[in-house]
Every structure is written in C-alpha cells, then in structure tokens.
C-alpha cells in the first residue's frame, strides 16, 4: 500500500520527474482555471445573471465575507491567497470520490508546501501592511524574553497546519483503502461520505487558520479585534 503519492512516479518531463501529487495538482489547477475561464467569459454586470455566475459570485463573496470577519478592514488583499487555498484544498479533497484519483492534499509535500506558503505570506503581508520594524516588534512582545517562544510558535504552527491537513486527508484515504479490502460493500461508501465532509471541514480550517495567522501579524487586525471586544481568534 502506498502511503504517499509522491513516490508514485507517472512520467518525466525532461529531467523533471512528475509524480502523482504533481500530476493531480496540475489536474486540479487545470480544472479550476478552465472552469473559471468558462464561467467568467460571459460575466453579466446587469441585474439579471446566469445561475453559474450567481454560484461563482456567492462562492467568492462568501469567502470574502469570511476573510472580512477575521481580518476586518482591508480584507480584499487576502482574497486571492486565502481564497485559492480554500478552493484548491476543497476541490482536491472532493475529487477523492473519483476512482483512481489520489488527492494531492493527502501528500505531506503538498500540505507542507501550502503551509510553507502561509509561513512566507504571514511576514510578507505583515511587512506590507505595517512596515518591517513594526512587524519585527511583534516577536519581542510583550518582552524580549518571548522572542524564542514566538519563533518556535511561528514554526510549530506551520508544521501543525501542514500535518493536520495531511493527516486528515491521508488517513481518510487510507481507512477507505483498508476497509475496501476488509468489507468491500456499503461501509466504505459511508466512510467515503465522511471523508468528503472531513475534506470540506479541513479546507475551511486550513483557510481560516491561515487567515488568522496572517491577520494576527497585522496591526489593523489587532485594532479590529480590540474594537470588537473579542481578543481571541475564532475556535478551530
């Protein structure tokens, strides 16, 4: 039984070996891009719109609203990054129902790559919004003694982010695989449905946590939270 799809080499592109993780990622990317292109090709700005456009607008505006709830003002700048995280993960997870498809999110490499992106995005957005000095001051708050703990916290939450998603998706796929070999009928279908729900929830959790990490390094977010009288991040 293959634990990860990274080791499943499908073909080589020149000297670059293309494994299942990368191949299915490209598949998901192509699916999302082509679907977006098809739907947004004939966008109507009138008050009467098509059902597909309505679905897309609901999706985008819902993601934007969720981001706005967490980040407060200036949420539009996070929409492409957080929205893509959510859409990519949920699509990857939901396609698991297709036979022969291995979700890229079941690979620790993919989840690590996504977590790495969040790890890089946090200081980038922080510096972009507040400046380098103001961002770096976050690490010595409340005292200089907290610097190592803050740094450990930064790394540990990236690792937790990556492992949580990987563990959930990989375990779901693994359990279904094991159960199919033990009880071939009915029960694996229920677990497949459970896997879909888990996939959706994990996509939501990953995106929300990424947003919380990014906004926690942002003064605007701090002011927004203090103004609302809610200092704690949303429950995960």
């Amino acid at each position: 039984m293959t634990i990860t799809s990274d080791s499943l080499l499908l073909f080589t592109l020149g000297h670059f070996p293309v494994n299942a993780t990368i191949a299915f990622t490209w598949l998901v990317m192509a699916l999302l891009t082509i679907t977006s292109m098809l739907i947004t090709r004939r966008l109507n700005t009138d008050t009467r719109i098509s059902h597909w456009q309505n679905l897309l607008e609901v999706l985008v505006s819902s993601i934007g609203k969720q981001i706005g709830d967490i980040a407060g003002r200036g949420a539009d700048q996070y929409l492409p990054f957080i929205g893509t995280l959510f859409i990519f993960i949920i699509t990857s997870n939901l396609l698991a129902i297709v036979p022969g498809y291995i979700p890229p999110t079941a690979s620790l490499s993919t989840t690590s790559a996504l977590a790495l992106c969040v790890f890089i995005a946090v200081p980038l957005y922080g510096i972009a919004n507040e400046g380098l000095a103001a961002y770096l001051r976050h690490y010595i708050k409340p005292t200089l003694l907290m610097l190592p703990f803050n740094l450990i916290g930064e790394f540990s939450r990236v690792i937790a982010l990556a492992v949580r998603l990987y563990g959930n998706i990989m375990s779901g796929t693994m359990i279904v695989g094991i159960l199919i070999s033990l009880i071939p009928f009915f029960f694996p279908v229920l677990l497949q449905l459970l896997g879909l729900i888990t996939g959706v929830i994990q996509a939501y959790i990953f995106a929300v946590l990424a947003m919380v990490y990014i906004s926690s390094a942002n003064t605007t977010h701090q002011h927004f939270i203090q103004k609302d009288g809610d200092g704690a991040p949303p429950p995960v």
Partner: peptide, 9 residues
C-alpha cells in the same frame, strides 16, 4: 515535490 507544489500553488 514541495518546491514544485509551492510553485504550482
């Protein structure tokens, strides 16, 4: 793969 996935993302 991680690097490729970062670029893909």
């Amino acid at each position: 793969t991680v690097s490729a996935q970062v670029v893909n993302f």
